[in-house]
Simulated assay, not measured.
Amino acid sequence: MRLFIIRKKTLFTIVVIALLGIISLIMFGVYNKAEETFNSDVYYQGNIDEKVIAFACNVDWGNEYIPEMLKIFEENNIKITYFVTGKWAEKNKDILKDIYSAKHEIGNHGYSHIDYDKLNYDRNKEEIQKAHDIIKETLGIDSKYFGPPSGAYNDNTVKAAKDLGYELIMWSIDTIDWRQDSTSDIIFRRVTQKAHNSAIVLMHPTAETVKALPGIIKYLFENGYNIGTISNVIKN
């Protein structure tokens, strides 16, 4: 009887070890798949290990705050990436030209500010291409970075973006500045507490972001970071 109990315990131990091994292999495979997606399809941060942080400003509204943002960046000799929707660009060509003439990088935010994860391949491609064409017509450039509105994308979005020659850009630090309870102090903490090499900071043209920017820039500079565009943190 005692020998049976010992053998039963041994068998149980073997089964547990085997299950742990299987779980580890599964997790390793998932991790590798995530790394593969990160490296080849979607960028949540840059791929260079340097103290550079990219600012990505998504624009579909907030015109009244853009001039002050541009002034702050000019005073600090900073160039960032503005992701603009095609619908906004159509209606605000002069503002778009002002942003570009200030030497900022222009990214594609899709034509409409909708959830691209709900679209099929053709609709994804249509929305990205339409915005691309408007930017091209207005500025004479071919954008190469696509930032999906609300960070919503699916496999169709990734494939459509790649087929159109775009890198799909997300973020590693979110200011969440569109929320009404996001004060400049909260935005400052959200950025500075998570600052890291090759980070991508998502922001929008809001009153509280404008208030927070000088302090954020000062903090990052004092801690040895450079601030730049998506192209400054992604090297292919």
Rank of each mutant, 00 (worst) to 15 (best):
I134H: 09
K144Q: 06
Q129R: 13
I26D: 07
I23T: 12
I135Y: 01
I169S: 04
V42N: 10
S112Q: 14
T157G: 09
D115T: 04
L164D: 01
F83Y: 14
Y166H: 03
H204M: 09
D41I: 00
N92L: 04
K93E: 09
I72A: 01
Y166C: 02
A152P: 11
D60V: 10
N39G: 05
S184N: 01
L70E: 03
E208R: 07
V42G: 05
G29C: 03
P214K: 02
S24Q: 13
G215C: 00
V42M: 03
Q193K: 15
D142K: 12
M170L: 13
D185P: 08
G228K: 04
Y31M: 15
S24R: 09
Y82Q: 10
V210S: 11
A54K: 00
N154C: 03
W61K: 12
E75K: 15
P149M: 03
L213I: 06
Q180N: 14
A56M: 07
E64N: 07
E75A: 14
N154G: 09
K218T: 07
D122G: 05
T13G: 13
K162G: 01
F4L: 14
K194I: 00
E64I: 08
A56S: 12
Q129A: 15
L164I: 04
G165E: 00
G151T: 10
Q45T: 00
I234H: 05
H196R: 08
D185K: 15
T13V: 14
M69Q: 14
A102F: 05
Y65T: 03
A161S: 10
F55G: 04
K91L: 08
V16C: 13
V210H: 11
L168G: 00
I78W: 13
K51H: 05
I217Y: 10
T206N: 11
H109W: 05
K162W: 08
I99V: 11
E105M: 11
L139Y: 10
Q45K: 08
L213M: 13
I23C: 07
I230M: 04
I200T: 07
A195F: 02
L220D: 02
S101K: 14
S112W: 14
K118F: 05
E35R: 15
Y116D: 02
I114W: 10
Y31K: 15
T37Q: 03
N108D: 11
E167M: 08
I169F: 07
M69P: 06
K8V: 08
I134Y: 02
D122R: 07
M69V: 01
L11Q: 07
L202V: 07
G151Q: 05
T192I: 11
G228F: 12
K93R: 11
G107M: 08
G228P: 10
K87C: 11
E68S: 09
L20W: 09
N156W: 07
K93V: 10
Q180A: 13
I22G: 02
V30Q: 06
S143N: 06
D142N: 14
I134R: 07
I22Q: 08
P205N: 01
I95V: 12
L3T: 08
S231C: 04
N32Y: 15
V15N: 07
I14P: 10
A34G: 14
I53Q: 01
K211E: 14
L3F: 14
D117I: 00
T175K: 05
K79A: 11
Y82W: 15
S172D: 05
T157A: 06
F83K: 05
D185S: 12
F221L: 00
G21H: 14
F221P: 00
S231A: 12
I106V: 12
